[in-house]
Simulated scan of single mutants.
Amino acid sequence: MNPKAQSVEEYINWFTGDLKARLELIRETLKKAIPEGKEVISYHMPAIRTSEVLVYFAAAKNHIGLYPTNSGVSEFKKELEEYQTSKGAIQFPHNKPLPLDLISDIAIFRKFEVEAKPPKTKKP
């Protein structure tokens, strides 16, 4: 089994060069979009959360994956046409500039989506 990073900083530091710089750009973009968010490692990936995880991201061989859940992909379907997507994932190829404004918009959408949910109540 692969090692699990204990922090987002540790995860990013596993990488070098351009890939590390791209991960840092995503990290900074998410921190600016959701300043109240907390950085966590979840499912072995960096993520930002408020009351729940809003967006995950991770490095892959040929792309960086952004995982904003199904709604985060479907809400931005038109803007994401040039990228490979699946139900809850977006692939940003290493050979293209990162769409930082779009990443920010997706994170903010997820924040408002989560805030709009009714609070969970504990069952007796």
Score class of each variant (00 low, 15 high):
residue 5 A to M: 05
residue 111 K to T: 03
residue 16 T to W: 00
residue 77 K to S: 15
residue 106 I to P: 03
residue 39 E to L: 11
residue 85 T to D: 05
residue 89 A to P: 10
residue 63 H to A: 04
residue 37 G to H: 02
residue 79 E to T: 06
residue 72 G to W: 10
residue 19 L to P: 00
residue 90 I to C: 06
residue 64 I to P: 07
residue 9 E to A: 15
residue 124 P to I: 11
residue 116 A to S: 15
residue 48 I to F: 08
residue 84 Q to F: 05
residue 43 Y to C: 03
residue 77 K to T: 12
residue 23 L to N: 06
residue 85 T to G: 00
residue 76 F to G: 00
residue 6 Q to P: 00
residue 96 K to Q: 15
residue 76 F to L: 02
residue 88 G to C: 06
residue 42 S to F: 03
residue 24 E to W: 10
residue 122 K to F: 14
residue 114 V to H: 06
residue 53 V to M: 11
residue 47 A to I: 01
residue 83 Y to C: 00
residue 110 R to D: 08
residue 80 L to A: 05
residue 25 L to G: 02
residue 44 H to A: 14
residue 110 R to Y: 11
residue 60 A to R: 10
residue 118 P to V: 06
residue 81 E to D: 13
residue 33 A to Y: 05
residue 67 Y to W: 05
residue 92 F to L: 15
residue 46 P to Q: 04
residue 82 E to H: 13
residue 70 N to G: 13
residue 88 G to T: 07
residue 69 T to L: 09
residue 83 Y to N: 05
residue 119 P to I: 14
residue 102 L to R: 03
residue 14 W to F: 11
residue 119 P to D: 14
residue 52 E to C: 11
residue 88 G to K: 03
residue 85 T to E: 00
residue 57 F to H: 02
residue 37 G to K: 09
residue 110 R to V: 09
residue 48 I to T: 02
residue 33 A to S: 12
residue 7 S to Y: 11
residue 80 L to D: 01
residue 14 W to D: 01
residue 86 S to C: 01
residue 62 N to I: 06
residue 114 V to L: 12
residue 82 E to I: 12
residue 57 F to T: 01
residue 36 E to D: 12
residue 13 N to I: 02
residue 31 K to A: 12
residue 12 I to R: 09
residue 92 F to D: 07
residue 75 E to L: 08
residue 28 E to G: 03
residue 72 G to P: 06
residue 74 S to A: 12
residue 117 K to D: 08
residue 28 E to C: 03
residue 85 T to V: 15
residue 12 I to V: 11
residue 61 K to M: 00
residue 69 T to F: 05
residue 86 S to T: 13
residue 47 A to T: 04
residue 62 N to K: 14
residue 55 V to T: 11
residue 66 L to T: 04
residue 49 R to P: 00
residue 16 T to D: 14
residue 91 Q to A: 13
residue 116 A to D: 13
residue 31 K to E: 10
residue 20 K to Q: 15
residue 79 E to F: 07
residue 19 L to V: 15
residue 75 E to C: 09
residue 6 Q to H: 10
residue 46 P to C: 04
residue 66 L to G: 04
residue 81 E to Y: 04
residue 93 P to K: 12
residue 22 R to W: 07
residue 109 F to R: 00
residue 76 F to N: 05
residue 10 E to S: 10
residue 78 K to F: 01
residue 51 S to A: 12
residue 77 K to L: 12
residue 61 K to S: 15
residue 11 Y to T: 07
residue 10 E to P: 07
residue 111 K to F: 09
residue 52 E to W: 03
residue 48 I to N: 09
residue 22 R to F: 08
residue 67 Y to Q: 02
residue 69 T to K: 14
residue 83 Y to E: 07
residue 42 S to T: 12
residue 76 F to C: 01
residue 24 E to A: 00
residue 37 G to W: 00
residue 98 L to E: 08
residue 49 R to G: 09
residue 20 K to H: 12
residue 46 P to F: 04
residue 25 L to K: 14
residue 36 E to I: 09
residue 100 L to E: 14
residue 64 I to R: 05
residue 73 V to P: 10
residue 56 Y to L: 13
residue 112 F to C: 04
residue 92 F to W: 08
residue 50 T to C: 00
residue 54 L to E: 01
residue 54 L to G: 08
residue 64 I to K: 01
residue 64 I to E: 10
residue 103 I to Q: 06
residue 60 A to D: 06
residue 6 Q to Y: 03
residue 21 A to N: 13
residue 95 N to R: 13
residue 35 P to C: 09
residue 50 T to K: 08
residue 24 E to K: 12
residue 25 L to I: 04
